[in-house]
């Protein structure tokens, strides 16, 4: 009963944030530029073209009518047409979003496994050389932006010690598997093309690692801190006195409460990856939604900008919702208070 209340509460909050976000983004794109149609077309466009665009974007209507018309379209999955390519924006998003999703999933796996493993080992063997090494790498990882990691990895693994591909999604001499899910690794598996799968997977590794470095470092630091705290609790002492092996104590009793702050940090970071992916995709020339978004921003393609930001906001809100559920699962105190 309580947990259902909790879920409904968080769900309502998510919907509220999404609506607010859509208003915010819509106003940024329509109000700040002053004359959006002129801005989108550039100073040299003929007046009739600007007038046409004004009509197409309903700019001659009051702003709340514009928003309503736009919202109606969005709820039907229609983000309007790109002002630059004249293609429907939704089709572009459908094409580019899976690539980013694939990248972020791999990065998230690297971040979660790496962060928890490094943090847990470092807490278990605290004070050892391994602990010092992890702490040093973690500090560097936190302060180094993802695009700097991208360039460093590109130099090291692409040129100095060329073991991994650095550009694009798949080798250019391989045939691209037919699109089913849009996730190239899964598509190639579905097509039974293992060579394409290997190539697609290898192409993901470097950008994913560059994306994951910051979050992984943070996750390792947080895991280490909360695990050291839990390891010094009385219950660990009594379990040790009872003769339970250390490995079992850690896996069964210490890890779960220690992971609560880690999970929160990791999930927030996975959502923030959508922001950092903007820069990493640019470095690796990876055809994802971020690269698409940057191009839209540079060409002042208002419809595409709004769509990209909304998709990222949606992903962010969904991630937050999932985090709340996971944290509530890990920590009964939150679950039982009904989300207060």
């Amino acid at each position: 009963m309580k947990s259902r209340h909790f879920i409904i509460h968080r769900l309502a909050w998510s919907v509220f944030v999404l609506v607010g976000l859509s208003i915010l983004i819509f106003f940024i794109a329509r109000v700040i530029p002053g004359d959006p149609a002129r801005m989108a077309l550039g100073p040299r466009a003929p007046q009739w073209a600007v007038d046409n665009l004004v009509k197409e974007l309903h700019l001659n209507e009051p702003i709340y009518v514009q928003y309503w018309l736009w919202l109606k379209g969005v709820l039907h999955g229609d983000f309007g047409t790109s002002l630059v390519t004249r293609r429907p924006v939704s089709a572009d998003i459908k094409e580019f979003f899976p690539a980013t999703l694939e990248l972020i999933v791999v990065a998230a796996i690297i971040e979660t496994v790496g962060g928890i493993l490094l943090g847990a080992l470092s807490a278990r063997y605290s004070g050892s050389w391994f602990d010092s090494l992890v702490r040093l790498i973690a500090y560097l990882g936190v302060v180094t932006p993802a695009f700097v990691w991208a360039i460093i990895f590109m130099l090291i693994f692409g040129y100095v010690w060329p073991i991994l591909p650095i550009l694009g999604r798949i080798d250019s001499n391989l045939t691209v598997p037919p699109t089913v899910t849009g996730l190239m690794t899964i598509d190639s598996l579905l097509a039974g093309d293992f060579e394409a799968f290997k190539s697609a997977f290898l192409h993901l590794l470097l950008p994913a690692l560059a994306l994951a470095m910051g979050g992984m470092s943070q996750a390792a630091r947080i895991t280490r801190a909360s695990m050291s705290e839990n390891l010094s609790r009385d219950y660990v002492g009594s379990e040790m006195a009872a003769g339970i092996p250390m490995k079992l104590i850690i896996l069964k009793y210490v890890l779960r409460p220690s992971l609560i702050p880690t999970v929160t940090i990791i999930a927030l970071d996975i959502a923030a990856m959508l922001g950092n992916a903007f820069l990493v995709e640019l470095v690796f020339n990876y055809p994802g939604i971020s690269r698409y978004g940057i191009n839209a921003m540079l060409t002042k393609d208002l419809n595409a900008i709004v769509a990209v930001i909304m998709v990222i906001g949606l992903a962010f809100v969904v991630m937050n919702f999932i985090v709340d559920l996971i944290v509530a699962y890990l920590d009964p105190r939150i679950r039982l208070q009904g989300g207060k």
């Binding site: 944030v17 607010g20 940024i28 923030a272 978004g293 002042k300 962010f316």
Partner: peptide, 23 residues
């Protein structure tokens, strides 16, 4: 505070990119 929630619902980099894109 609800306005704050909305502003915090996007990574700061993305929000900053969106605003500077129209400026």
């Amino acid at each position: 505070m609800r306005t704050v929630d909305i502003f915090l619902a996007l990574p700061p980099l993305v929000l900053a990119l969106a605003v500077s894109a129209v400026l």
